[in-house]
Simulated scan of single mutants.
Amino acid sequence: MADDRISDAPTRTHDRRVAWGVVALTAATVLIGAAVPAPSHPRARVAPSEDTACAEWGDGCRICQRGEGGIHCSLPGIACVAKEQSCLRRVGG
């Protein structure tokens, strides 16, 4: 029996080191997770045609303007490839 305890001592020491290593790694992960700010959620993008502050917008093919009589858009060219709409002129703040 005495021999079993002597041979188990290095194993127990190794097991303790591994257990403390796991505890330290878990604690470090929790601390890093608490210290790093959460990613911000992107705001929902409003189409320029729905944004009342956008007076003029276009997609590279057509240009639209918001006026007193409503929204008026130009006709696209023959070989035009439209891109994403963007606001070209804003009014107000």
Rank of each mutant, 00 (worst) to 15 (best):
V30C: 00
G77Q: 08
H72E: 11
G33F: 00
I63S: 12
A53P: 00
V36P: 06
A82R: 09
L25P: 00
T13D: 13
G33L: 04
S7M: 15
S7G: 00
H14R: 15
E68P: 14
R43N: 07
H72R: 02
S86I: 11
G60D: 11
V91A: 15
S7D: 14
V18F: 05
I63N: 06
M1Y: 05
A19Y: 03
I71E: 10
R89V: 15
S40H: 15
H41E: 15
D15T: 01
T26R: 01
T52E: 11
I6K: 15
R16Q: 09
Q85H: 12
P76K: 06
D3S: 15
I6N: 09
A27T: 04
V91T: 14
P37C: 03
D59K: 10
G60S: 07
T26D: 03
H72N: 06
S49M: 14
V22F: 04
T26C: 06
Q85V: 06
I78G: 10
T52R: 04
G69Y: 12
A82V: 06
V46S: 14
L25C: 10
W57M: 00
C64E: 05
I78L: 12
G70A: 02
Q65P: 00
H14N: 13
L75G: 10
W57R: 00
V91S: 13
L88F: 04
A44S: 14
G92E: 09
R5L: 09
D51L: 12
T11G: 09
L25G: 12
C80G: 07
I63M: 14
A53Y: 07
D3N: 09
L31A: 13
A28T: 12
R17M: 15
P42W: 00
T26L: 14
L88K: 13
E50I: 02
W57D: 04
G60F: 02
S74C: 11
A27I: 14
R89W: 02
V23S: 05
T29Y: 08
G67A: 08
G60C: 03
V36D: 12
V18T: 04
D59S: 08
A47F: 01
A44C: 03
S74I: 01
R89D: 04
E56I: 07
R17Q: 11
C64R: 06
V46C: 13
V18Y: 00
H41F: 08
E56H: 08
G60L: 06
P42M: 06
R12G: 10
R45P: 12
A9Q: 10
C73L: 07
K83D: 10
A53C: 07
V81P: 00
A24V: 08
T52D: 11
A2E: 03
G70P: 00
T11K: 12
G58N: 01
